[in-house]
Each structure stands twice: as structure tokens, then as C-alpha cells.
């Protein structure tokens, strides 16, 4: 069977222009017409192409500041790309330490909002609501606003929503750092169960163990360039060599 692409990126790139003093009011702009702010260009992602198929688990490796998180945000459609072409088939969800939750809403409302944003119908959210609450171990706090939660509780709720509701393409940025030991074990168990099968996942991690265990292919990045994209073991070798 021909694999169907979940995500196609051709020649995408991203440059951040950072001005030293920000001119973001009308007054500031008027008073400084002849005195443009000094700008710094940071090429976060240089021309990159890649293709991810449905059901694949892709690892992303690289040292801090090499552009992994920016690439993930581009691929998730959160940031617009500067050049090239990006086709995303389906809903995406980006997960790092926080996921898209409003601190003004209760856990219950957040589950419904996130579920709905991820493309579920209200009835479908009803069906998995209890599973999410139980997995996050937040039964007593269902109707508490999450601004009163501890950061661990918020992270657990986010992880549970991601696991149970899940978008078509999931971007997981260092998620194994969530929760206490017991919760981490649960999180890893989820990965070992059939959850990951059939899902399109992009996994960012500094743990070689996790990457080599779950990823069919991996990319190795350095200074905003995708140096290698393909076999997982080769990518890990390159990353380890870079760390020497």
C-alpha cells in the first residue's frame, strides 16, 4: 500500500527579525519615522524539505537552540513559513510543557474546548470525558478553574487530553518531563501500548532511548539546518558525535 502523506514541507524556512527596541505603538512609529530600529535577523530554520507519512513516528534530534521547536511550530501550522510550501492534512496538536488551555476555565470546560478544537464532536468528548479525568487523576477538581491547579496538575490534564482526544498529527516536545514518577510511568506505558500505532507523531526528545524505541525515522538538526533525515540509528550517531 502506498503510504499517504500526512505532512509535506518543501523548501520551508523561517527567519525571525528582532528589533532591539520594539516599535509597537502608533506613537512610537510616528516619532521614529526617520530613525528605524536596529534589527537583528535570526535564521531559525534554513531551507528545509521533508515529508511525513500517515502513521509514522518521527524523532527530532539536535542540541539546544538548533531550531527543533521552531520547526515543530512551523509544521504544526502555528507559525507561518517565510518561504516554500507546507501542506498539513488534518488537525494538529502541539504539546510541550503547557498545551492550549485557558487558566480562566475549569478542567471540565478546558476538556470540552480542547476536544472540540482537536476536531471531536461534543458527544465524542462526552464519551471520553471520564477517561481523561481518571487518567489525569483530577476527579475532585473537575469544576475548579485551572488557575488554581499546580503546574503538575495542569501538565497532567494536558497530557491526558492529548492522549485521549489526540489530533491527526501530534507534535510532542519533551513530554516525558511531565508529572511525578508515577505519572511518568503511566505516560510511558501509554506509548508502549497500542496508542502510538496508527498515529502520526513527531517526537522531540533528548532521550536517545525514547527515540530509538519508538521512531521509525529521525531527523538530526544543527544550526537551523536539517543535516540528516532518515534512519533513526544514523541520526542518533550523528547527534552523539555532535555532543562530543
Amino acid at each position: 500500500m502506498e503510504p499517504t502523506p500526512a505532512l509535506v514541507a518543501r523548501n520551508i524556512s523561517k527567519t525571525f527579525v528582532i528589533s532591539e527596541d520594539s516599535h509597537n505603538t502608533v506613537k512610537h512609529r510616528l516619532f521614529n519615522i526617520f530613525n528605524p530600529p536596529r534589527k537583528k535577523r535570526i535564521e531559525a530554520i534554513k531551507i528545509t524539505s521533508l515529508e511525513i507519512n500517515k502513521g509514522e513516528c518521527i524523532g527530532l534530534l539536535g542540541r539546544n537552540g538548533c531550531g527543533k521547536s521552531t520547526l515543530v511550530k512551523l509544521l504544526a501550522g502555528v507559525y507561518p513559513t517565510d518561504t516554500g510550501f507546507l501542506k498539513i492534512n488534518g488537525s494538529t496538536m502541539l504539546m510541550n510543557l503547557g498545551v492550549g488551555m485557558s487558566h480562566e476555565l475549569t478542567a471540565r470546560e478546558n476538556i470540552y474546548v480542547s476536544g472540540s478544537v482537536l476536531g471531536l464532536k461534543i458527544k465524542e468528548v462526552d464519551a471520553i470525558f471520564d477517561e481523561i479525568i481518571d487518567f489525569a487523576e483530577l476527579r475532585e477538581f473537575v469544576d475548579t478553574k485551572i488557575k488554581f491547579f499546580s503546574s503538575g496538575m495542569v501538565a497532567r490534564l494536558g497530557f491526558s487530553i492529548a492522549v485521549k482526544a489526540g489530533a491527526d498529527i501530534m507534535f510532542l516536545d519533551e513530554i516525558f518531563a511531565v508529572g511525578d514518577m508515577k505519572f511518568q510511568e503511566k505516560a510511558i506505558k501509554v506509548f508502549e501500548s497500542s496508542w502510538i500505532q496508527g498515529k502520526t507523531v513527531v517526537l522531540v526528545s533528548h532521550s536517545m532511548e525514547v527515540i530509538s524505541k519508538y521512531c521509525q525515522r529521525a531527523g538530526y538538526m544543527k544550526d537551523g539546518v536539517m543535516k540528516f533525515f532518515g534512519d533513526t540509528q544514523t541520526a542518533i550517531q550523528l547527534y552523539l558525535a555532535d555532543n562530543q
Binding site: 504544526a76 502555528v78 488537525s91 494538529t92 496538536m93 502541539l94 498545551v99 492550549g100 488551555m101 485557558s102
Partner: peptide, 11 residues
């Protein structure tokens, strides 16, 4: 104020 809705997905 509604950043949480689009910051983590392609809504």
C-alpha cells in the same frame, strides 16, 4: 486573550 486556542494547534 484567546492565544491558548491557536498557539498549540492549527485552528
Amino acid at each position: 486573550t484567546k492565544k491558548y486556542l491557536y498557539e498549540y494547534s492549527n485552528m
